[in-house]
Design a protein around this nucleic acid. Structure first.
Length: 635
RNA sequence: GGCGAUGUAGCUCAGUUGGUUAGAGCAUACGGCUCAUAUCCGUAGUGUCCGGGGUUCAAUUCCCUGCAUCGCCA
């Protein structure tokens, strides 16, 4: 069997974050699982480096687009090894081969008549340097520049996507696993129930030069998807390399839900137009929220892969992300949740099981794998559980239900712990009659651990390697062979390693919901009506912020749009327009609620609120002196 | 505005093709063991299964409606 698994190529206008890491860990885990299953596997990731946002970001950073994309692309590439992610190929859309082949494909599709030249009329904002959709406008204005966009005409090239609509609907219906999980398939089918518009695939060089020139018209560059999606082909050396012939028809793409439409609609129709088979499967996952809030730069709650590895280590991060998210749904990330998984699942259940088993083999079995005797019911039950687990595990891994795969493994971990208690080897040793079962007990225990290590390998490569080393086994061979019961050779020397996973303290000052109450009853007490507990108050995060900008919101008498530093920059809409003039506000230090759920007011997203006192008809901002540092907590 | 999804124990979720006591993990309390990373095993709970209405001998499960959250579309 052959497997080609990809992540999206990540857009380099921002640094890598948790979401990128998740997609890539999923793809890596799947690649490792397929390799373990004996497949010929290729795993590709990379970066998307063209377009106007890149030019803007480069300008903002004061460097050329090329040096900017080189720098950020390297950030992505370097994020993966610490997470034990090992792609076979890292593609960049600025690679020469990619550019050359994108042009060849454009030429081909153009030659056969699926690309045409046409005029487009749209709402263009000078400030944003882009077209806006009706939907984005607020009261007819650009939301960022508060000016009406100009209606302008622009000529561009279009891809006749609509030609392939019926074919695509049919393909999705006759291949139920083409888009998974099913909710996303349904979403796309519903989208396809309306006629497809053709896809604009160019930008005039008068507006954008940082892109791949169209081969048939050098006054235009390729726009976004016709450049980006094709990476999945050019990364295989399309059209001539034999890698293409080997890996293309089996391609599986991992994406987050935000780029569902390009992958589920644009990409298959593009492939069809090129005369190629569509990919095999699209695996769509949800978002990681930070606690309650969405992850966003302006909220300053973006977690980078680097910090996560430094704090928890690759194995724990990988385990947590795969175990805690139901693939396809959104999930929430918090340091507390990671520590919880690490302590209970990893340290207590698996780590301690491994540790206690090897210690006893050292103590009671002379540090060698014993010869098993005649198994009793309790022994064969454990072996049966392992075999059943491998089957469930394989199925769930294949279907991208990683949390269920891991759940199945941990059921066996639990059974093994129980097996120890039920046998109580420390008592067996003392009883001549019982003693003869001891070898069987430890053989079955060690075999279970060997099989658990095997299952855990794609998710936690380091921990699995430690377990293998301790058990004195290797992982050469495929899953079906290795998972067979009884491969562990009696007489093999066992060496107890350092603990697999350390226990972590529940951590971190500030946000921490206070450690255990001395009087536990008190913690649960509900506050009398009308009062809140200290803990409830503690959830409100008040901070000092400096107003750095203020403007009126059109059509609103009461609202001002404030830009503040807290210390990160954020926008807060405040109902103080009747009491303060915008020009009087910059420089003032006020108190804001920093962890208020973001909301839209008159179409303007607001991240927090400003405290003010209401004195009759007057409204007075709660201010603090300038010597108080911006960002200070107020309590 | 249209379409759809979700709403179950303190938390994260599973489940019920309608039928006696609605489940798992975590968290909590108590008990047991001592090989182990103060770990493991056992026991104990609590739920208007979002609100309202309907169908039915019987609804958390089906239907309608409302509310909340989220997604897609316009």
């Amino acid at each position: 069997m052959t497997t080609y698994i990809t992540t999206p190529i990540f857009y380099v206008n921002a640094q890598p974050h948790l979401g990128h890491a998740y997609s890539t860990i999923v793809a890596d885990t799947y690649a490792r699982f397929k390799r373990l299953s004996g497949d010929n596997v290729r795993f590709q990731t990379g970066t998307d480096e063209h377009g106007d946002k890149i030019v803007q970001a480069a300008e903002g950073a004061g460097e050329s687009p090329q040096s900017y994309v080189d720098r950020i692309s390297a950030l992505f590439r370097d994020s993966w090894p610490p997470l034990e992610i090992e792609p076979d190929n890292f593609i960049r859309t600025t690679d020469h081969d990619h550019i050359k082949n994108v042009q060849a494909i454009l030429q081909k599709v153009h030659d056969q008549g699926d690309i045409y030249f046409s005029e487009y009329e749209g709402l263009y904002c000078q400030g944003c340097e882009r077209f806006l959709t009706e939907k984005e406008l607020i009261e007819g204005n650009c939301p960022d520049h508060l000016k009406p966009p100009a209606k302008i005409r622009e000529q561009n090239y279009f891809f006749k996507m609509g030609t392939y609509q019926e074919w695509l609907i049919d393909h999705i219906n006759s291949n139920p696993d083409f888009i998974t999980p099913a909710r996303y398939k349904n979403e796309m089918l519903s989208f396809l129930s309306e006629p497809l518009e053709d896809l604009c695939i160019s930008r005039p060089t008068s507006r954008l030069t940082w892109g791949i020139p169209l081969p048939f018209d050098d006054k235009f560059v390729t726009y976004v998807w016709f450049d980006a999606l094709i990476n999945y082909l050019t990364g295989l050396g399309y059209p001539d390399d034999e890698k293409f012939a080997t890996y293309w028809p089996v391609a599986e793409h991992v994406i987050a839900k935000d780029i569902l439409k390009p992958h589920a609609i644009f990409w298959p129709t593009m492939l069809k137009a090129m005369g190629l088979e569509p990919y095999k499967k699209l695996h769509v996952h949800g978002y990681w929220n930070m606690g309650e809030a969405k992850m966003s730069k302006s909220l300053g709650n973006v977690v980078g892969p680097k910090e996560m590895v430094e704090e928890f280590g690759a194995d724990v991060v990988r385990y947590f992300l795969l175990r805690d998210m139901s693939f396809g749904l959104d999930s929430s990330f918090s340091a507390e949740a990671v520590v919880g998984r690490q302590n209970s699942d990893l340290a207590n259940d698996l780590g301690n099981l491994f540790s206690r088993s090897l210690t006893m083999v050292g103590k009671f079995m002379d540090g060698r794998v014993p010869e098993p005797g005649e198994p009793r019911q309790i022994d064969t039950a454990l072996a049966g559980a392992c075999t059943a687990m491998v089957e469930t595990y394989s199925k769930e891994m294949t279907d991208f239900r990683f949390h269920l795969a891991l759940q199945a493994v941990w059921e066996v971990v639990g059974k093994a712990n129980k097996y120890i208690v039920e046998n109580a080897p420390w008592d067996m040793v003392k009883d001549e009659e019982q003693k003869r079962h001891l070898g069987t007990v430890f053989y079955y225990l060690l075999e279970s651990l060997r099989i658990i290590a095997l299952a855990v390998e794609p998710i936690m490569p380091s921990a699995a390697a430690k377990m293998r080393a301790g058990l004195g086994v290797d992982n050469r061979g495929d899953l079906a062979t290795l998972a067979a019961w009884g491969r562990l050779a009696p007489g093999t020397a066992i060496t107890k390693p350092e603990p697999l996973f350390p226990r972590m303290e529940k951590k971190k000052g500030g946000q921490q919901p206070a450690k255990k109450e001395k009087n536990p009853a008190k913690g649960k007490e509900k506050a009398p009506e009308g009062l809140i507990t200290f803990e409830e108050f503690g959830r409100v995060e008040l901070r000092v912020a400096e107003i750095i900008g203020a403007e009126k919101i059109k059509k609103s008498d009461r609202l001002l749009k404030l830009t503040v530093r807290a210390p990160e920059e954020r926008v807060i809409v405040a109902g103080i327009a009747e009491h303060y003039q915008p020009e009087d506000l910059p420089g003032r230090r006020v108190i804001i609620v920093a962890n208020l759920k973001p909301a839209k007011l008159m179409g303007v997203p607001s991240q927090g609120m400003v405290l003010a006192a209401k004195d009759g008809d007057r409204l007075v901002l709660a201010q603090v002196p300038a010597e108080v540092a911006v960002g200070s907590r107020v309590a």
